[in-house]
Simulated scan of single mutants.
Amino acid sequence: MKVKTLAKQVATILGVPFSTRGFHETVTYIAERIENGQKTHVVTANPEIVMLARENRAFQSIVEQAYVVPDGIGIVYAAKWTNQPIRERVTGVELLEALMTEANKHQWGVYLLGAKPDVISLAAEKLAARYPNARLVGYRDGFFRAEDEEKIVQEIAEAKPELLFVALGAPRQDEWMVKYRDRLNASMMMGVGGSFDVISGKVKRAPEIWQKLHLEWFYRLASQPSRWKRQLAIPRFVLTVLKEKWSSRS
């Protein structure tokens, strides 16, 4: 299969280069790259990730070299305010499920890393049942010591997964993947944050009506009040985008 030559499809939001491809186009693009042996590091970025990159130069450098998708309605609104062509969200958990569908179709190998021991084992069990033709070549929780990393890297390298999903939280998950990128033998690696918690059933995703109303962030805050400090990134993101927009007009 040959990857189509496409014009560069990037929109820059506060220094972060986002893909402007829609959800289905994104899945097709990543799948074609995997089929062609091209390695891809996917970052699912919401306003919190954008603000983190803005404040952390090392993380910003990682994001600049990755394939970044707009995970969060705040990114879509920011693109609209700055007249850039991002039309829809590409959420991490939905992208993971869509890529698992591709893995099921092509019998790709999949490795899962991160989350709590009970969460990752349950997520692995559910994904294996849901996508029986995908090869679950291994999984490991995220509570490991520095001295365990070499063994984990070797295990992943030997498994040679087409898909490597890592849930260690930002920016650690992307820093970890980039640190070992050349040794992991993974076709595509993607940080998935709390996706394993959702897949395992430990955390419930917002009902569809909340998603359609673009209030998923508020549902999560109401369900997990301890997230309030993290959610402060949203108003800071909005104010920073609008400030830059007004500054560019003056």
Rank of each mutant, 00 (worst) to 15 (best):
M1A: 14
T5Y: 03
L6W: 07
A7Y: 13
T12D: 10
I13E: 15
G15K: 06
V16E: 03
P17S: 10
F18Q: 03
F18M: 07
F18Y: 15
T20K: 14
G22E: 08
H24K: 14
E25H: 06
E25I: 04
T26P: 01
V27C: 04
V27K: 04
Y29F: 14
I30Q: 08
E32T: 07
E35N: 10
N36S: 11
N36Q: 14
Q38P: 05
Q38V: 15
H41T: 06
V43M: 01
V43P: 03
V43E: 04
A45Y: 09
N46F: 09
N46K: 04
M51V: 13
A53R: 12
S61C: 10
S61R: 14
V63T: 08
E64T: 12
A66Y: 10
A66V: 12
Y67V: 15
Y67H: 09
Y67W: 11
Y67G: 07
P70R: 09
G72C: 05
I73N: 07
G74S: 13
V76T: 04
Y77G: 06
Y77V: 06
N83A: 13
Q84L: 09
I86L: 03
E88P: 02
E88F: 00
R89N: 02
V93S: 12
E97P: 00
E97F: 04
E97S: 01
E97V: 15
L99N: 00
T101N: 03
E102Q: 12
K105F: 07
H106L: 12
Q107Y: 13
Q107I: 03
V110F: 01
V110L: 00
Y111K: 05
Y111N: 10
L113N: 00
L113E: 06
L113D: 04
G114W: 02
A115E: 08
I120D: 01
A123T: 02
A123E: 01
K126F: 04
L136F: 12
Y139H: 15
D141W: 05
F143Q: 04
F144C: 00
F144I: 14
R145Y: 07
D148F: 02
E149N: 03
I152C: 00
I152K: 00
V153K: 00
E155G: 05
I156Y: 01
L163P: 12
L163H: 09
L164S: 00
A170E: 09
A170C: 11
P171E: 12
R172K: 14
Q173A: 03
E175C: 03
K202M: 06
V203F: 12
E208A: 15
I209Y: 13
I209K: 11
Q211G: 15
Q211L: 07
Q211T: 08
K212D: 15
L213F: 10
L215Q: 04
E216T: 02
Y219Q: 02
R220K: 13
R220E: 06
L221Q: 09
S223V: 04
Q224Y: 07
R227E: 06
R227C: 01
K229F: 05
I234L: 14
V238P: 03
L239W: 14
L242V: 15
E244L: 15
K245F: 08
S248G: 11
S250P: 14
